[in-house]
């Protein structure tokens, strides 16, 4: 059964001469704690960026008071959220109302385990890495539906059901777009996918089998926007229609779990897009500036460019209608994803 350990850790050495089992256990717990911290910091940073970018786009200043240019504002908000009273509606289903935010955060965090942050810095070099990310994200859907149902509120329920329909629909083009990359590389392992993109920026997956992988990139980007419930596909929490959707009846720490999960998911998706299509942690200039600290820098800068585009779209585009959303998924993205897949297949055998 030690197969388990080979899936979960790549660390070979032990700490302080402890037995290997205990040492590995400590590594796993430490790694999980680090990812908790990383995702929380990324969420705080994401919220701050969102406020500042939206302010710039709307010709405002955004948060300016707390810290220089409001840089401590999200930290103050986080402290405020943690200290707030936790209100559970009297008619809510208490158990599920509690499980939903825990599950959404746990699922988001679990997906972080396979990400490659730079050469050799990966918590779990899972052989089915990208497949695992797609699979574990399905817990997010369940958590959102449960949140919507357990709140016992019509807006919550509508938000939950919209989210379920939306995420399930967009999972199909997203998975097909991932398939295109997996076909081009011949592996589900994220490390193999990054290795296949060795060289300068023109060997990135986005330029491979042109234009089919580029189509897959666009399809995956749009589908991931919808899976994140981000504008223009933010029907599950459309403020003007259903208050705050599935999160309407949540407050305090539980609400911040949803919020944290949303921004952590944005970061996750950006890293996945970077890994699949933009060379992961590889430098755009081949071996130039490709040492380990720079790899982390490249990964984060590519991911933050993607995050910036996500925010840019949110503050530029109006929300689509539900029927337009389904049209986008089934009649636009899915056929294009199939075209990309068949095209890559043809080019591979030619």
């Amino acid at each position: 059964m030690p197969a388990f350990i080979s899936f979960l850790t790549i660390t070979e050495f032990t700490i302080f001469g402890l037995p290997e089992d205990i040492s590995n256990l400590i590594f796993m717990v430490l790694g999980a704690a680090i990812f908790c911290g990383v995702s929380a910091v990324m969420a705080l940073l994401g919220v701050y960026l969102e406020r500042k970018i939206s302010a710039k786009m709307q010709d405002r200043l955004g948060p300016m008071e707390v810290g220089s240019h409001g840089i401590l504002q999200t930290l103050a908000d986080a402290v405020k959220l943690l200290l707030k009273e936790d209100i559970v509606p009297a008619a809510a289903d208490k158990t599920l109302h509690f499980i939903a935010p825990v599950m959404i955060f746990a699922a988001t965090l679990a997906a972080f385990a396979v990400l490659q942050f730079s050469e050799g810095i990966v918590f779990s070099d899972l052989n089915v890495g990208i497949f695992y990310i797609i699979a574990i994200s399905s817990f997010v859907v369940i958590a959102i539906i449960l949140a919507g149902w357990s709140s016992n509120n019509k807006w919550s329920l509508l938000g939950g059901m919209r989210a379920a329909a939306q995420i399930v629909s967009f999972e199909i083009p997203a998975s097909l777009a991932v398939m295109v990359v997996v076909m081009s590389v011949g592996s589900l392992n994220l490390g193999d996918i990054i290795d296949a993109q060795e060289g300068s920026m023109f060997s990135w997956m986005i330029f491979r089998f042109f234009p089919f992988n580029f189509i897959a990139f666009i399809v995956f980007f749009v589908a991931s926007l919808a899976e994140l419930n981000r504008a223009p596909f933010d029907m599950p929490e459309a403020e003007s229609e259903i208050v705050a959707g599935f999160a309407t009846e949540y407050s305090g720490f539980k609400w911040s779990c949803f919020f944290l999960a949303e921004y952590a998911n944005m970061f996750l998706v950006s890293v996945v897009i970077t890994t699949l299509f933009l060379g992961g942690w590889r430098s755009p200039f081949g071996d130039f500036l490709n040492s380990q600290p720079f790899q982390l820098f490249w990964l984060l800068s590519k991911a933050f460019v993607i995050i910036f585009i996500q925010m840019w779209l949110r503050w530029t585009l109006p929300r689509v209608r539900v029927d337009q959303l389904m049209y986008t998924s089934w009649k636009v993205l899915t056929p294009f994803a199939f075209v990309a897949m068949i095209g890559v297949g043809l080019l591979m055998i030619l």
Binding site: A3, F131, A135, S138, V141, I142, I145, W149, L157
Partner: peptide, 29 residues
């Protein structure tokens, strides 16, 4: 996973949790 069947484990979650269970709850709702 404990049996070393990584692909089957992930497929189990993807198909049963992500597909069947979501549709089931959706149907109930």
């Amino acid at each position: 996973v404990l049996l070393g069947a990584d692909f089957v484990a992930v497929a189990q979650i993807l198909i049963y949790v992500g597909g069947i269970l979501v549709l089931l709850i959706f149907g109930v709702m």
